[in-house]
Computed example of a mutant assay.
Amino acid sequence: MVTSVVYRRHLTRILLLGTMVVFMVRLSAQEIAVKTNGLYWLTTTLNAGVEFATSNKVTIELNAAYNPWTFKDDKKMRFWLVQPELKYWLCEKFEGHFVGLHLHSAQFFGGFKDKRYDGYLAGGGISYGYNWILSPHWNLEAAIGLGYARLWFKESDRIYCEKCYENKTKNYVGPTQAAISLVYMF
């Protein structure tokens, strides 16, 4: 319970900081984009992102994803995720190669085999990507990221039992981002 409160406070701070940055950014044509990650859609995960230019070579992106579904035999991995990212474009914003720094935070519940997991994750990483201009308003973007995530969760048998769980933590290092996104430029 305490972990949940602390986690929500951190998430609130991140979202407030992101909102303040958005309002400080000068918005005009070709300064803002909305996007969705096709790889998330393949896993039935609803997702959307918005990206703001802060200069000709720097953008700030905020992505969110949500998966509320339960599948056959009560198999599920419900989660919500936020992933802000600062991108540096090697050519020009929203065009060509970029490198980025991202953070990620999520809450998850579910499992597909004999265990259930109920917990949180937080971390960050670096990314590389490329953005192809398809038309004046449409782009296609591919990105990959590597980084770290700290997970803290309750692990229990798949059959629900209020008292039958074990508190666990895990440190993860590896891929933290994969995207093939359709981007709409304003």
Rank of each mutant, 00 (worst) to 15 (best):
Q107K: 15
L81F: 01
R13T: 13
W80V: 01
A33M: 12
D73N: 08
A143N: 14
F98K: 11
V2T: 04
Y184M: 08
A142G: 15
G129D: 09
Y117D: 00
G124S: 06
G96D: 03
P68V: 04
Y128D: 00
L182I: 15
N167A: 04
T44A: 14
Y66T: 00
G49S: 15
L42F: 13
M1D: 06
I14P: 08
N56M: 03
F94P: 00
F52R: 09
Y172M: 01
Y148C: 08
M185V: 13
D114K: 13
A142D: 03
L90C: 06
V173E: 04
Y130G: 06
K113H: 11
Y117H: 15
L86N: 02
S181T: 02
L11W: 09
E166D: 13
G96Q: 09
G129L: 02
S156R: 11
A29N: 12
E166N: 13
G111P: 00
I32G: 02
F71L: 12
H10K: 12
L146Q: 04
D118G: 05
W89T: 06
F112R: 00
A53Q: 06
G111S: 07
S4R: 14
I180P: 06
D118H: 10
W89F: 12
I60Q: 10
L121Y: 03
Y117V: 10
V58Y: 11
R158C: 04
D74M: 09
L103F: 12
F79E: 01
L81W: 07
P175L: 12
G18V: 00
G123A: 06
L151W: 04
A65L: 06
F186Y: 15
G174M: 05
D73Q: 07
A106D: 14
E85A: 12
F153Q: 02
V21F: 11
V82I: 15
F94D: 10
S55E: 05
